[in-house]
Structure formats: C-alpha cells, structure tokens
C-alpha cells in the first residue's frame, strides 16, 4: 500500500479515488511513528486526494496536522491555497498566491497554481502574462510552453501559439505529440502548407508500425491538408514561408494507404472503418 502511494508520488499520478482509499487506510492502521519518512508526503498526498474527491472533513483534519508540523512554511501555504480553490474561493486563493510570490518570486509551484486560478477565473490574458514571465526564468519548463500555446489558441492567437510550440519542440524535438499539436495549430490558423509539412514530420517521428494514435491522426491531417490545397480556388501561400510539397498526388496516395492500413487489424470498429473508407473515397 505504502509502496503504491510512493510510486504515485514519484510519477505524479493523481488517481484521487484510489489514493484517498489507500491513504486513509494507511493512516488509520499505522501510528505516525511507524510511517517514518513517509508520513508527511503521505499526509500531503492524501490531503490533495481528499480535496479532489470533495472530502472536506478529512482534508481539514490532515491540513491541521501539516500546519502544526510546518507552521508558516510556503509548502503548507500552497496547500492552504489548493483548499481555497477546491472550496471555490478563487479570489482568496489568488490573493494568497500573489502574496507568496511577492516574497519569493522563483517559487515554481506557486506560479503554476496562480496561473491555474487565473484560468479558472477566465482571466486568460493574466494567465498568459504570468506564464510568459515564468518562462523567462524557467525556459526549460516544457509543460509551461505547452500551456502557453493552449492559452493563445483559446484566444485565437495562432501565431503566438505556434511560437510557444516551437520552443516546446526545441526542448523535446523527438516528441511526436508536440509536433502534432504544432501541425493542428497551424491548420487551425489557416497556414495549410505549414500544417502539411508538420503533419508529415509527425509521421516521420512515429514508428512506422504504429498506424494508430498519433500516426493515424497525422496521416488524416496530411490527407485533409492536401484536400484543402487541391480544392482551393487559388494557390495557398504559407504565411510562414513553408514550401509546398512536391507531387502532392503521391503523398495523398501514400496517406490513403496508411490510413487504410490502420483499419486492417482484427476487431476494428466496423462503422468507423466504413465511414473512413467513404471519406477516403476508397
């Protein structure tokens, strides 16, 4: 039980339902001394799970234990903020986080919580400003760049979203998922030639055997881009200067083949296959 929870902590797995069940049991059946070094991380983990599951009574109990052991610590203040968020006291949580950051600007966890609160308060611009400030200090925060891209997408600033994503791609060049997000964002922003080249890049990043997931999405994207290019009344220019593909007909044929391959296996959804075949015109 303790090992499972430790593993969840190390891998940042949230699974609140299970954590709450195991954590509660562990705390009930063991004396604090018997849990040793595990005690405080375990209390924190169970506390967060209790908040996720809406068990405010247990959360309150665990919080007072943590607060007594580490009075005035920033970690505990953060935990207090999370509780305010769970109770819907977003403005109070916001003030608390802003206050902590005035004292210690480089507290990454608090920054992230504050940005989450801005998002919940629908203050997208404030969330963007804070993230930009944060990324100035923590350039390597991949998750931050992805989040910034998502925020820009939400307010239809696709060029800015693409810029944020290109930082993510610099930090994790082999990750097909980020490249896919880049391609889908470029498409949404109307830069079809750029989207096409990025969808093709994704197909190179995934193992050729994987016709599903990221690979399938990318091949469908390739197909959709080529359609847009072929049906356009005039030649589609790329805002970013991305070159067009040579021999689009050939690429299109290849995409059709790869998509059909994905539906070759056993047990595939019949209706889904039928709809895709119809869409492909195959």
């Amino acid at each position: 039980m303790a090992a499972v929870l430790r593993e969840y902590r190390n891998k940042s797995v949230r699974a609140p339902h299970e954590v709450l069940k195991l954590g509660r049991k562990l705390l009930q059946t063991h004396s604090p001394g018997a849990l040793g070094d595990d005690l405080w991380p375990l209390l924190e983990q169970t506390y967060l799970a209790a908040l996720d599951m809406g068990d405010t009574a247990l959360a309150g109990e665990l919080f007072s234990q943590l607060d007594q052991r580490f009075p005035g610590s920033q970690r505990v203040e953060m935990l207090q903020g999370v509780r305010l968020e769970a109770d819907g006291e977003l403005d109070t949580a916001r003030r608390l986080y802003e206050e902590i950051l005035q004292g210690e600007e480089s507290n990454l966890i608090i920054w992230k919580r504050l940005i989450t609160v801005y998002k919940q308060l629908n203050q997208v611009q404030k969330a963007i400003d804070s993230l930009t400030q944060l990324l100035d200090v923590f350039y390597n925060d991949l998750e931050g760049w992805l989040e910034l891209a998502a925020l820009y997408t939400e307010i239809f600033q696709y060029d800015h979203a693409l810029q944020a994503l290109s930082h993510a791609l610099l930090l994790a060049p082999q990750n097909p998922f980020h490249a896919l997000q880049f391609a889908e964002t470029a498409y949404t922003g109307g830069d079809i030639p750029l989207a096409l080249s990025q969808f093709l890049r994704v197909t190179e990043l995934v193992p050729s055997s994987s016709g599903q997931g990221v690979g399938l999405r990318a091949w469908l994207g390739v197909k959709q881009c080529i359609r847009r290019i072929q049906y356009a009344p005039k030649k589609l220019e790329s805002k970013s200067g991305a070159p067009g593909v040579e021999r689009p007909g050939l690429v299109d044929e290849c995409a059709t083949e790869r998509v059909l391959e994905a539906y070759d296996g056993e047990g595939v959804c019949v209706e889904g296959k039928k709809a895709v075949r119809r869409w492909l015109g195959a």
Partner: peptide
C-alpha cells in the same frame, strides 16, 4: 483514433 476498435459512431 487512439484505438480503432472503439465504436464512437
């Protein structure tokens, strides 16, 4: 798209 066995339709 993650698992083509899933009948979403």
């Amino acid at each position: 798209l993650e698992d083509v066995r899933i009948d979403w339709l």
